[in-house]
Computed example of a mutant assay.
Amino acid sequence: MTLSYITLFSVYILSGYFVMSGELTFGSVMIFVQLSSYILEPISELGTLLPNRKAAKSIMEKDEKLLSTIHSPEKTQHLKDFTGRINLQNLTFSYDMVNDSIKNINYTFEQNKSYGIVGGSGSGKSTLLKLLAGYLSNYQGKLTLDHLEMKEICNDSIFHNISFIEQEIFIFDSSIKNNITLFSDVPESQLHNAIQQSGLEKLVEEKGLDYICGENGNQLSGGERQRISIARALLKEGKVLLIDEGTSAIDQKTSIEIEQEILNIENTTKITVTHKLIEQALRKYDEILVMQNGEVVETGTFEQLMNNKNQFFHLYQSTEAEMAPH
């Protein structure tokens, strides 16, 4: 910055000299001074940009090294008559190739059943769901959909067979219908079925399909936004529905209602990550997976896990204590 001021001051002195000597007009000097600022400002920022470039270069080199270790086989397989069965064998995953976020998981999600995944913060729940959705491919072990390895299945086939409701739900500043269909042409019967199964009937009856949701859904409640995301996923008619803490931002009563609506969906394998350990909802899952430090440490029904008095029992008890009125 000091260099910039010194240079600009020098320009003024020299310009004054040339005007006094008659070699330049005052108008020419003003143009010259104005143009010089466009040159001097970028130069003055070099002191800040150069250290940032050096830091960015080291990050890029690290990323290139990481990417060079990832083997991405050609995805040529297509899911045909996918049943919704997912098998994990010694599944391990690391974001940085050093620390494992998922460690040696062996488990089978059977078709059309409902599963709840619970665990403390950082236990690997969301990472596991991203692996099941096909978002992360540089894993070790096996992750198969009806005996086809996930790494070998083309992305379009995964997308059309697996629906993923993530924590952050984006709502367009458009109609309820457009937000459900994502501006695609959908048969009325299919749209009606998605509205019915997601519990959106009341909202549609009251406000109509053409009701404008507002910027990022600011004209809707948290529960209504959640139901739109469920209806959106149901339109795909995929065989697997993944929900990542989808009801975390809404009240307990609405949360239970939405979980019940999800569990009532037929012909779909449903896998839900939740941190709301509500007995009424947890009892409805066919099986609950308990995660800790990237591992599945316990599985069973709500009743079985409570009787075992192990990890799930203590997690449930601590959550109950936090939710109790003080």
Rank of each mutant, 00 (worst) to 15 (best):
M60H: 10
N99L: 02
S101Q: 10
D96I: 14
L50F: 13
I117N: 00
I86E: 09
L67N: 03
F82K: 12
G47Q: 14
D81L: 09
D100N: 15
E64R: 03
D81G: 12
L91C: 08
A56N: 06
I59Q: 13
N112K: 05
L79P: 01
F93Y: 10
Q77G: 04
R85I: 08
K75L: 08
I102P: 03
D81Y: 07
N106Q: 03
H71V: 01
L88E: 00
L50D: 05
L67T: 00
I86P: 02
N106M: 04
D81H: 15
M60L: 08
K62M: 08
H78I: 15
T108I: 13
I102R: 08
L66N: 06
L91Q: 09
I86Q: 07
N52C: 14
T83F: 01
L50K: 08
T108W: 09
H71G: 04
K65D: 11
S114Y: 03
E110D: 11
L49W: 10
A56K: 10
I70M: 08
K62P: 11
D100C: 15
L88T: 03
S68K: 13
R53I: 14
K54A: 00
T69L: 04
T69H: 07
S58V: 04
N90E: 08
E64V: 00
D81I: 12
G47Y: 13
Q77N: 13
G47R: 15
P51H: 15
K103R: 14
L79Q: 00
G84N: 08
I117S: 02
T76E: 04
G119N: 02
L67F: 01
V118W: 02
K54S: 01
V118K: 02
E61K: 01
L66W: 07
F93T: 03
S68T: 11
D81P: 06
I86L: 14
E61L: 02
A55M: 12
K54W: 10
P51F: 07
T69Q: 07
G119M: 02
M60P: 07
L66I: 11
A56Y: 09
S68H: 06
T48K: 14
D63M: 03
M97V: 05
D100G: 15
M60A: 09
K80T: 02
L49D: 01
L91V: 09
F109G: 00
R85G: 02
D100H: 15
I70A: 05
E110N: 07
S58F: 04
T83I: 12
N99E: 06
H71E: 05
S94D: 05
K57Q: 15
L50T: 13
L91H: 00
T76L: 11
L79T: 00
L49G: 03
P51Y: 07
M97W: 07
S72H: 07
K65I: 06
G47P: 10
N106A: 04
A56M: 03
N104I: 08
K57R: 14
N87G: 10
S72D: 06
K113I: 04
I105L: 01
E74R: 14
N106T: 07
K113V: 11
